[in-house]
Design a protein around this nucleic acid. Structure first.
Lengths: 221, 221
DNA sequence: AACCAACTTACGGTTTCCCGTAATGATGCG
DNA sequence: CGCATCATTACGGGAAACCGTAAGTTGGTT
């Protein structure tokens, strides 16, 4: 089993139950912090002291408070940590269930496991840690289902840019200027209209208002 | 301290940490369930056995799985539980932070406390349980801030009807027919336009899309 | 270079929305 | 009743969005 584990999780009760779950697994008492910056500091110090961590368990999203942070969330923390210690194993533990986000973590951040905060998360945490210890990847099973069900539109960067601009109050006819300035490729007004039409058609909507509400529901904005 | 507590929380790790937090408070070992229906069953049985619970701690949203439930979430559970046992104290423990939703819980469900799953939730849980034990209401402080900032518009039934229709895809010009059928008073197209303008002006918006996103954020739709 | 296919943009007519103004209706008070 | 005030509705010009079609671009193939 892992000797040295560090937990980055801002929610007090989650942090406690993570510690308890690890204890049941026979892991040594893990270190735990409530801020990303602290996590990186500890990881750096551990490397310097030649007692590096074996595993980082981190949430994705941390709430802001009166303690401003340089590192914004779990993804950035993983990136920074791997620069200090490339061989560090990483397990993400978060409520996030959007496939696009989780795919990115595995493909770009090269994380070793993802467990979603959901019904059987304790059990899956144990499986994940065991799998990672055996140099395997792990994804909690509740996410594989979501992927099948989700027969919905795949939102591209362009789609999200358009919707974000609408939500920010930009008139549709002015969005082309914004897209050009940000080097987003199709930037013509017709392309924007076509894109909006496609999204609404696929989802069975007739008005932008419906689309905005839907995007809020599934959390892409 | 409370003698008999029941916890309804589907997330395994949260459930564990709730139990641990309660144990630290000197409460007796609470009962805990992972489904709303089970919670109600236990509450009913406890009443029948004349050993009723003193406090119900529940999440708001429960994930669906292969175990279909009659009771959909924490709000319905509270309503059903109070029909069985009107004097039952209730504490909601959820990630929800939309003021409209939480206001509804206090005003309509008459809950005794709300603690948001966030940074210091363990500490606030202890304060909440203590406050409720002393027959006081409790709201975790991270939410009071949100409320102060929220210098917002007071949405009338008309406002909500208009916005709901837009979100359902009704063209603005057809909303008067809907309002007449439902006996909602000002139903002229001009009144609808004026109302939308007022809402947008107060909130500093220029487009309906912004308004929809805002209403989703604060939870009135 | 010529060609094709797919993508992107431009253009116009129509509908809807926006917004200011005016007319109508309801209510209260002397 | 007459009048004032406020809320609601009707109207019309102009702007924006919608939608189909045509023109232009790009990238790959022969």
């Amino acid at each position: 089993m892992f000797k040295r584990i560090i937990i980055a999780e801002d929610q007090e009760t989650q942090n406690i139950s993570l510690q308890k779950t690890l204890a049941e697994l026979g892991a040594e008492k893990p270190d735990y912090v409530y801020y990303c910056d602290d996590a990186l500091t500890w990881i750096k110090n551990a490397v310097k002291a030649e007692r590096p961590y074996d595993l980082l368990i981190t949430d994705l999203y941390f709430e802001e408070d009166h303690n401003p942070q340089k590192i914004d969330g779990g993804a950035e923390l993983i990136k920074a940590a791997k620069e200090v210690q490339p061989n560090l194993k990483t397990l993400v533990f978060s409520g996030e269930n959007r496939p696009a986000v989780i795919d990115m973590l595995f493909k770009e951040m090269l994380i070793d496991g993802y467990v979603r905060k959901a019904r059987h998360d304790g059990q899956y945490l144990r499986l994940a840690i065991s799998a990672i210890h055996n140099h395997k990847k792990y994804l909690s099973p509740d996410l594989k289902q979501v992927r099948k069900e989700n027969n919905s539109h795949d939102f591209t960067d362009l789609d999200i840019a358009i919707i974000s601009q609408l939500v920010d109050g930009m008139p549709q006819k002015n969005i082309p200027y914004y897209l050009q300035e940000n080097n987003i490729k199709p930037s013509g007004l017709s392309s924007i209209e076509k894109r909006l039409n496609l999204m609404k058609e696929v989802l069975g909507f007739s008005k932008n208002e419906q689309l905005i509400a839907y995007c809020k529901d599934i959390g892409i904005i």
